[in-house]
Every structure is written in structure tokens, then in C-alpha cells.
């Protein structure tokens, strides 16, 4: 058992654990922050898999994203503090089965497919960052630009549908 194996397993289990906590707690802020820690554990797992840039980026981006999630939970839920333990679920049996089947299917594919030769060493972190930069501004430039443009479109669309109607008065 190598150190890498241990850390992948450890952070993987904590990510799954926090992911389960998201749907088991009644407090909405706890739910959002559990999702945050699940994603942070994933970021640590990326670090364990030597993808340093992605790991740090994941840890950074998710903190903001999930905090925003938390405030929306508090705004939109009827019982954000979770004091009343109200049930907010439906079709539980179906969803449990769907989740279980997709998990088993994923594991079966992971175990039974022949993945071919395993690469022993990854390039070091500085080299990876350089490679990624060249990839973004070279071969994948169009895709990256499209991603940026899509974000811009999404920002405009989200703002457009969420601003209140002006009721005949100038702002």
C-alpha cells in the first residue's frame, strides 16, 4: 500500500461521506457546507493524484460557489435552520435504486474493463502548468474561448431573468 493509494482512498471516502451528509442533514447551511467539504476533499484527492493545478483550482472555486449555494438555500427553503425536521423528498425508493444501480454499474465498469498499461509517473507540477497553458492557448483555444463566451451568455441570461420587472417607474 503506497502513500498515494492511502491518500486517494482517504480523501475519496471523505468526499463520499460529505456527499451523503448533504442529503441527510436537515440544516440547509450545513448541507451546503457539506457539499463544499465534499468538493474540497476532491480537490485534495486531485492533489494526491499529482494534478496540482486542478486540485488548487478546485479548492479555490468551490469555496465561493458553495457559499453562494448556502445563501440561496437560506433564501428559498421554508426551514433553513432545520429545526422542524420536515421531509423534503419524494420518490425515495426509485431514486435510491437509480443511485445504487448507477454506482454498481460504474464500479463494474471500473473493475472489469481492461484499462491497458498504467502510467507510472506523471510530469512534475511546473511542467504540467506549462503544458496546460500551451494546450489552452494552442490546440484547445477555440474550446476555451467558447467556454468563456458561454459563461458570458449564462451571466447575461441569469441576470436578465432574475431582475425584477419595472412597474412603470424609472430607475
Amino acid at each position: 500500500m503506497t502513500a498515494q493509494m492511502f491518500f486517494i482512498g482517504f480523501f475519496g471516502i471523505s468526499a463520499i461521506w460529505f456527499g451523503v451528509v448533504v442529503f441527510r442533514t436537515f440544516s440547509m447551511v450545513r448541507s451546503a457546507l457539506a457539499l463544499l467539504f465534499s468538493q474540497t476533499a476532491l480537490g485534495a484527492m486531485f492533489l494526491a493524484m499529482q494534478a496540482e493545478f486542478l486540485g488548487v483550482l478546485q479548492i479555490m472555486m468551490m469555496a465561493t460557489e458553495m457559499s453562494i449555494m448556502a445563501i440561496f438555500m437560506v433564501m428559498f427553503m421554508m426551514d433553513p435552520g432545520g429545526m422542524g425536521t420536515m421531509d423534503m423528498t419524494h420518490q425515495k425508493r426509485l431514486s435510491l435504486w437509480a443511485g445504487f444501480v448507477s454506482f454498481v454499474g460504474g464500479v463494474a465498469i471500473a473493475v472489469f474493463v481492461d484499462w491497458g498499461p498504467i502510467a507510472a509517473i506523471a510530469p512534475d507540477a511546473a511542467q504540467q502548468t506549462i503544458d496546460l497553458g500551451l494546450e489552452i492557448l494552442g490546440r484547445s483555444m477555440l474550446i476555451f474561448e467558447m467556454a468563456g463566451l458561454t459563461i458570458l451568455t449564462a451571466m447575461i441570461a441569469a441576470t436578465a431573468i432574475s431582475i425584477p420587472e419595472l412597474k412603470g417607474k424609472q430607475q
Binding site: I8, A15, G19, L42, M45, G99, F100, S102
Partner: peptide
């Protein structure tokens, strides 16, 4: 790692 991915996917589907 793939099992972790599958488990997160399953929890997410649920």
C-alpha cells in the same frame, strides 16, 4: 479513484 467517482455519481443521482 473510479469507484469514488461512481459513488459520487450515485449519490448525486439519488
Amino acid at each position: 479513484a473510479l469507484t469514488t467517482g461512481a459513488a459520487l455519481f450515485g449519490v448525486g443521482i439519488y
